[in-house]
Design a protein around this nucleic acid. Structure first.
Lengths: 346, 346
DNA sequence: TGGCAAATCTGTAACGTTTCAGTATATTTG
DNA sequence: CAAATATACTGAAACGTTACAGATTTGCCA
């Protein structure tokens, strides 16, 4: 008799994954009631609420993300936008782990949106905002005047940045205090009696280039030291370029006797370059480097190291963007991590 | 007069993000026709198809993922399941980049699902399958008898594994030929006149432990060398444990004069341990290590290195799982990457 | 000319969820 | 005691998409 393709309630109760309808059938309530009961709405009787929640737990009900998303627009997704041509040596793993650890206890999923160097960094940002494919965004490689920050702020889209900006916009960020790092590094080199210092800085476009550079310059000044310019490469360059340019640097007449390096991978190239030019680390020149995990010092104990924790950064940024989503008018989390001491050679 | 809260066609055309309805209004066609036209269905006139597609492109129509997902069950998501307690030194960045590069030109998003060491590795897998939150899964740290592989295979869920299994199941994988790596390494050490070799292997639970170990043992045999057991640690151990155990190893009476190491981070610890015990690399003992990016050799040129490309692995696995989704009955992609030559000290 | 097939297009229903506008029953109030 | 109000629940509609089962038009053949 029943030629329709409507599912009956009983069908519903038997088949595959449970939905609100399944729950409604099992409890004898309406779908609406079940929905409200699951989110502890006050207009549902206490006893009914308990009952629905019990049954839901028993049969392992999980809300259908697509259904929620379609109806409410809420995606329960955080998107982290990464540059795939990023520095080798990969602090990125820890960064991502930090984020996902934070997200693990929440209903949020983490999606990784890449862009390559030749592409527009705005592209993935626009995509996410225009298609509403995430509730929040985490960006890195922040610039002083960052179009992404402007764009996201203008639209009131929740985000957090790894690094600060300088455009008078109050936004959530987590940053490592690279100015202090540079100061610590210079001070250490001064203590070692070094006089002519070079800095292998991040690319000029990034905000923390300025920070690191100004800390470096100011502290050089205070200690009566001089700078040996080394701007032909940045820590973004490929390893081999850095190595070559370091050889170049060391062969100059006014070569440095101390070098500060703000990134992990490039430090390897620096050392290789110094030695290829015939100089000895610790004798002719000292090196203070920033490293995510202190591996380098295991094999080259003569270098000085400051650690930077990227897992913490990920964790922080996830927290920041979540609280941003939760309440867009709340004050954005802004955390500046001060570097620990410079770890000396053993 | 119109007190309903129905949106009229004109409303639709003005407001926010375009949908099929917007397109239908603009072209004067039905929603169904537009939907079919956009996917080049044959029953839509050629001219209409062109027209619809043109308009869609003009106004930047993007299908609503939640709509598609709710209706079809297709998520357009690939989930990569990672162990967050994974080895420091992070080859993971490259792995993830490899995947997302491959996915960039497709409609697929990449979501990272973590699990920590004390948690059940099956948990994220079950979650994805039960909630249908992805169309395919990429797993790593594959075991000879891997419950995840069994589970996914039983349910016909598309996946690809970084590493092989040994349970008579034909599944998609990408693997580095660690047996060949170990052979190459041993051969190199034999050529250098080394006689007593040790192997710092991966954890015994993982499939490639067997591969590496059997290659190592067999090649030792062929070359008339002997093994110095070194099973107190695996490459999964924390850096400091490896360093300590290496000191231990080197202080034994029958200490090795050659060591093979199958992972990047641990090699640093090995070197530190060897030297802490008072021995000199290249003189007392030689080291052949596998490294994702050849950074180590820059600062310790006396070691021998084989490179392993994790970006390629990611790319491959993404391809594999996509083709699996595309056609579940097609033969699974199975790729074994043979190691390149051992890079000698310079 | 009538009939039939092919070509092209369309409306309805459904996926699972939440919101809106109720309804029915019990309880209080004047 | 009627009316107002509070309590507990419910059906219908909508989010954007696609599958299904038509509907309309055109061209062709007997």
């Amino acid at each position: 008799m029943d030629k329709s393709n409507h599912k009956t309630d009983e069908d519903e109760a038997e088949t595959g994954r449970p939905t609100l309808k399944t729950l409604a059938f099992m409890t004898g309530l309406g779908v609406t009631t079940v929905s409200r009961a699951l989110k502890d709405a006050p207009e549902i009787g206490a006893e009914t609420r308990k009952r629905v929640q019990l049954v839901a737990r028993q049969i392992g009900y999980r809300p259908n993300r697509a259904g929620v998303r379609l109806r409410t627009g809420k995606t329960n997704v955080i998107s982290v936008v990464l540059n795939t041509t990023e520095q080798i040596g990969g602090f990125l793993s820890d960064f991502i782990y930090g984020i996902s650890e934070r997200l693990a206890a929440t209903p949020y999923h983490l999606v990784v949106a890449p862009y390559s160097h030749n592409n527009d960094p705005m592209e993935p940002i626009r995509y996410v905002v225009e298609t509403g494919s995430a509730d929040g965004i985490i960006i890195s490689r922040t610039q002083p005047d960052d179009p992404r920050v402007r764009y996201l702020t203008e639209r009131g889209f929740p985000f957090a940045a790894h690094g600060r900006t300088a455009m008078g916009i109050e936004h959530a960020y987590h940053d490592f205090d690279n100015e202090s790092f540079a100061r610590l590094a210079v001070r250490r080199l001064a203590e070692l009696g070094r006089r002519r210092l070079a800095l292998l800085a991040p690319p000029t476009a990034l905000t923390y280039h300025q920070h690191m550079r100004s800390g470096f310059l100011d502290e050089i000044d205070r200690n009566g030291l001089s700078e040996v310019p080394f701007s032909s490469v940045s820590s973004d360059n490929v390893i081999d370029d850095i190595r070559r340019q370091t050889i170049e640097l060391m062969r100059r007449t006014g070569r440095p006797d101390g070098i500060v390096c703000g990134a992990g991978g490039p430090t390897f190239a620096l050392i290789a370059g110094i030695e290829a030019a015939g100089f000895k680390l610790g004798r002719d020149v000292d090196l203070v480097a920033k490293e995510p995990f202190n591996l380098l010092q295991l094999v080259r104990p003569e270098i000085h190291v400051v650690e930077e924790d990227f897992r913490l950064a990920g964790h922080d940024l996830a927290t920041a963007v979540l609280s941003r989503i939760d309440d867009r008018s709340a004050a954005p989390m802004q955390r500046l991590v001060v570097p620990g001491a410079v770890i000396a050679p053993r």
